[in-house]
Each structure stands twice: as C-alpha cells, then as structure tokens.
C-alpha cells in the first residue's frame, strides 16, 4: 500500500480514450475501450496475457494506430498528429518496456544520456552527466553507470528503463508489465519505485500488469480487461469485492498461490 496520499486532480484528464477499437487481421484485440486518467493518478490495467493491454498503451504512445475511436493525450488526438507534433508529445509521455529495451551497444550512462542529448541539442556535457546521476540515484543504481546492459539483472534493467524515461521529465508514465519475470522482493522494489516516481515527479501513469500485488500497491484505480473490453473498474477493494468468476479466479490464482 502507498505510504503517501497522491495528489490527484479529478478536474484534469491527461488521458481520455473513447470507444477504441484495434484489430490485427482477424484478431480483434481492442473492442470498444473507454478509459481516462486524471492528473497525478496511477491507473492499473489488469488482465490475462493476450487481452490487448500492451496494445492499448502502444496506441497511447503513438506506436500503433487505432482502427477507430478517439485517443486524447494531454489534450491532443494522438492519431491525428503529424510527425513533429507526435515527437513533441512523446517527450511528455514516458514508456517503460517489459524488458527495459536498453540499447545493447551502449553503457547504462550512454543509454540515459542518449535521449537527453538528442532532444536537447545545446545541453552541455556536465549537465548531461549531472542529470544522468540524478535519475540513476532516483532508481537506486548510481553505481551501474559504466556497466553494459548485458551485465545487469532483470530488475536492474527495468529500473534503468524507468530512469531512461524519467530523464526526459515526462508528465505521463506508461509501464508495460513492470514486474513480469521478477522475484517477489524485486517486484516490491519496482512497485515502490513506481510509487516514488508518482510522488517525486508528479506523474500520471498507466500500469499494465497481471500481477495483483503490483496492482494493489501502485494503483489508485484498477480496470480489469477481458477479451479486449473493460469488464470491471474501481479501487482495488471495489474490484475484488465481488462474486464474479473471472475476478475471483484472478484473485485466487495470485494470492492463494
């Protein structure tokens, strides 16, 4: 559970998605999704693998185009933006990939400096170095600056992935399965880090997961996804205080195990 009360502005929606559809050939992945995220809020999208959770955040980040529906991020319709506007928007939307997606040929420090240098051409070497140190300290991995991604553990790679996103100071964070494939202790560390990012950097987030502990620890609001649709939404207690078989099955599998 969170050790702080998040500052959520219920009057300001940073993400507003309405009636979103997406198919890949005959595979209808998203079937009429409606979701909104308020400023400062962490929304967890919960569901089994293959229900379209990752596709949803890839559409929000402009990596995939929707078939129909509206995707409004920070007041802009993502699918209607030209390349320049989309790039501007992406600076405000951080995306943390499931496996970190660190650049293999660069050290940790270079991985972090790369997006910063590219997007702020006149930044000095000293400024880059300082900002890299700040975000590495924020994720607790200041000593890994000269290491290669192949030398890091799965949890460390995810932390560095988060740090690389944070260096651009985004308003929105999109986490794709942040705790997948990690041991319970590392999962707790990542959950705490997600909360710390929300508290310290005042971000709004969508967290894609099938891990109920992650959902419980990080989510201010939970939505449960099944076959491309949201079937339940509310706080963690509201969602799981139910007799619905799907939700009970999910709960039992995660917690009774």
């Amino acid at each position: 559970m969170k050790s702080f009360t998040p500052e959520i502005n219920m009057n300001e929606k940073v993400i507003d998605i309405h009636d979103l559809y997406k198919s890949f050939g005959s595979n209808h992945v998203l079937r009429g999704i409606d979701i909104n995220v308020h400023k400062g809020e962490n929304v967890v999208v919960l569901g089994r693998s293959g229900t379209g959770k990752s596709v949803l955040i890839k559409i929000i980040a402009g990596l995939l185009a929707p078939d129909s529906g509206s995707v409004n991020v920070l007041g802009q319709e993502v699918d209607k933006l030209d390349n320049v506007a989309l790039r501007e928007l992406r600076l405000k939307v951080g995306f943390c990939f499931q496996n970190g997606a660190l650049y293999d040929s660069m050290t940790v420090g270079e991985n972090l400096a790369f997006p910063l240098k590219r997007n702020t051409p006149h930044i000095t070497h000293a400024q880059v170095k300082r900002m890299v140190t700040v975000v590495l300290e924020a994720v607790g991995l200041a000593k890994t600056v000269d290491q290669m991604p192949s030398e890091l553990s799965g949890g460390q790679r995810k932390r560095i992935g988060i740090a690389r996103t944070l260096i651009l100071r985004p308003d929105i964070m999109l986490y794709d399965e942040p705790t997948a494939g990690l041991d319970p202790i590392t999962c707790t560390e990542i959950n705490n880090l997600i909360n710390e990012v929300q508290r310290r950097f005042h971000t709004s987030s969508i967290i894609i997961t099938h891990d109920l502990t992650c959902a419980k620890d990080t989510g201010d609001k939970i939505v449960v996804m099944k076959e491309g649709k949201f079937v339940k939404r509310g706080t963690f207690d509201e969602v799981f205080n139910t007799q619905d078989d799907l939700i009970k099955e999910f709960y039992d599998y995660n917690f009774i195990q």
Binding site: K58, L63, R90, F97, N99, L102, D104, R118
Partner: peptide, 18 residues
C-alpha cells in the same frame, strides 16, 4: 532485427528519436 524484437527501436521512437 534484434533491436526490433527487443523493442529497442520502439524505445527510440517513444523517446522522440527518429
């Protein structure tokens, strides 16, 4: 190809890098 399948190319794109 390895950058594509490990989402490194997507990571560049979402970092506003072409």
């Amino acid at each position: 190809a390895s950058m594509r399948v490990t989402e490194q190319i997507d990571a560049m794109e979402v970092s506003a890098i072409n």
